[in-house]
Design a protein around this nucleic acid. Structure first.
Length: 212
DNA sequence: AACTCGGGGCA
DNA sequence: TGCCCAGAGTT
């Protein structure tokens, strides 16, 4: 997609959803980190419900460890993959205390070394908590980037690399948020709402004229 | 690259 | 009822 079209693309996405990022609800990097670990393959509504009560009880690594695996599972039982997530969160808390003074580390390498934290989660924390212009490629962004022709790639890493090349600096910080919301509400996996899409005229998807 | 974890949402 | 979801770890 030509640079001028890319600029128009993000201008329209920003106008479509100007509200602040949902991650800003979290008060500390630690709360954000735990919430993003929980959000893997889960809906944000189920994560919001769990963290609302969980963080009233345990908003630090120390309190989370004091809660214990059983106590933690009680809060996140309604979230998918909760067994491994409970285990990973507590293991991460131990590492935060042992190696990072109880704080969330600011480097990608240290973040990705935490149990339950992969590239996507690390990118979200780096962007939202520490203000770095990363783009976290999840399934939504992977689909939108490929379908529209904005930044096509065979793997998430390739899509991320091409997004970092193509997204103008002024849109970089919030690009992943707009792309995710667009993928969730408009450019959906099953039946994309191309009739309501603000960037349909810039989109390369051949099926965009399909009925429905 | 393929497989597993997993309850909830949605058609 | 069947399929997908704001992924990560293991093999």
């Amino acid at each position: 997609m030509p640079p001028e079209a890319v600029r128009t693309f993000f201008s329209r996405l920003r106008a479509e959803r100007p509200e602040p990022r949902s991650e800003l609800r979290y008060r500390t990097p630690f709360e954000l980190l735990v919430a993003v670990i929980l959000s893997a393959q889960a809906t944000d509504a189920s994560v919001n419900k769990a963290t609302e009560t969980l963080f009233r009880v345990a908003d630090t690594p120390e309190k989370m460890l004091a809660l214990g695996e059983e106590g933690l599972r009680r809060h996140i039982r309604h979230i998918g993959l909760h067994n491994s997530k409970a285990r990973n969160i507590l293991a991460t808390c131990r590492i935060l205390l042992e190696r990072h003074g109880g704080e969330v580390p600011r480097s990608r390498e240290a973040l990705e070394a935490l149990p339950g934290v992969g590239r996507k989660t690390a990118n979200v924390v780096l962007n939202v908590a520490f203000g770095e212009p990363t783009i976290a490629v999840d399934t939504h962004i992977f689909r939108v980037a490929n379908r529209t022709g904005l930044a096509p790639g065979r793997t998430p890493r390739e899509v991320e690399r091409r997004l970092l090349e193509v997204v103008p600096e002024t849109f970089r910080r919030h690009a992943h948020h707009w792309l995710i919301l667009h993928g969730r509400y408009v450019c959906t996996a099953r039946r994309p709402r191309c009739g309501a899409c603000p960037v349909a005229d810039l989109c390369a998807w051949e099926g965009k004229a399909a009925p429905g």
